[in-house]
């Protein structure tokens, strides 16, 4: 049974357990002053599928990502990634273990060339050690390997024509592409994409979506934050809904829109009609 098929038997309830979770979160909370930005009782993320994390602005999605990836530390609770305790670990350690993220506000390294940006993503580089760096023969061969991997990915993301340009000369959408391609250089087992399509033009969105789907084929688990419900329905296998820091619903993408709690969270508690996703009601939540 494929990971996606396994999800068919999972009940659409918040905090439900999955057959093969890569990430298990327990009681994770984070408060900013009096505001509880994240307060998650239990969440499991199925291995090998695409999970969407949705929720209104300020729901705590980015904060939750920060907590999981070591960019922020939770006030309480634990996260287990691939069988190992992840909470308390620093961001670079988690990245080396295969949990690689991108940022809502893109972080292209503007004064490095596009291909250098890509090469940076590769982990376990011998030439990154100070003394080894002084002796080129120790890392030349590996560097060539990394470079050909980088070139292959650039081609796949249709960025090869910008290979030697400064990343700072790229458009916003191209930077999103670069950041995603760069994260793949790190050979991740779990990629966490924070609004990968935000600000990307529709034509480019389509190709980004194809790339995200192709990750699933390679056995990479994807968790991504997205506001556009069309996108969510198109590529995700499972949807997790966050509101006011809590997980309020989970389920397959085609039924999540009719969940009363989700409707309440997005529109206030006085609506009773199912969300008209095609009309793009949720799009209004876009920043």
């Amino acid at each position: 049974m494929t990971p996606v098929e396994q999800l068919a038997d999972v009940a659409p309830e918040p905090g439900v357990s999955k057959p093969d979770p890569i990430l298990v979160v327990d009681d994770v909370s984070r408060a900013f002053g009096g505001l509880k930005a994240v307060d998650v009782d239990h969440l499991e993320v199925q291995r090998g599928v695409i999970t969407a994390l949705i929720g209104p602005n300020g729901a705590g999605k980015t904060t939750f990502f920060n907590l999981l990836t070591g960019f922020d530390q939770p006030d309480s609770g634990t996260a287990v990634f691939d069988g190992e305790i992840a909470s308390g670990k620093s961001s670079h350690e988690l990245a080396r273990k295969g949990m690689v993220r991108t940022f809502q506000l893109t972080k292209a390294l503007t004064k490095l060339s596009v291909v250098e940006n890509m090469k940076l993503g590769a982990t376990h580089q011998r030439g990154e050690h100070f003394f080894a760096a002084l002796v080129s023969p120790l890392w030349n061969a590996q560097e060539r390997d990394i470079e050909s991997r980088a070139d292959a990915l650039l081609e796949r993301f249709k960025l090869d024509h910008m290979r030697d340009e400064y990343a700072g000369t790229m458009s916003g959408g191209q930077r999103k592409l670069l950041e995603m391609a760069r994260s793949l250089m790190a050979d991740p087992t779990l990629v966490m994409l924070d609004e990968p399509m935000a600000g990307v033009n529709p034509a480019l969105t389509q190709s980004l979506l194809e790339h995200v789907k192709s990750l699933r084929h390679e056995g990479i688990t994807v968790m991504f934050v997205e506001h556009d419900m069309d996108v969510v329905r198109d590529i995700s296998d499972w949807v997790v809904v966050m509101a006011e820091g809590q997980i309020i619903a989970e389920g397959p993408p085609d039924t999540i829109g009719s969940n009363q709690q989700v409707i309440d969270a997005y529109l206030g508690s006085h609506h009773d009609s199912a969300l008209d996703l095609d009309a793009g009601l949720l799009d209004e939540e876009k920043p």
């Binding site: 972080k107 004064k111 250098e116 760096a133 250089m185």
Partner: peptide, 29 residues
């Protein structure tokens, strides 16, 4: 000159540009 053309130099320059991006790619900034 040697350091800055090596992967070590690449990491250091990346940290100058954006420390968080480097950390997200597994570099101990």
């Amino acid at each position: 000159a040697q350091l800055m053309r090596s992967p070590w130099g690449r990491v250091v320059k990346a940290i100058r540009e954006d420390e968080d991006a480097a950390r997200a790619l597994g570099k101990n900034a």
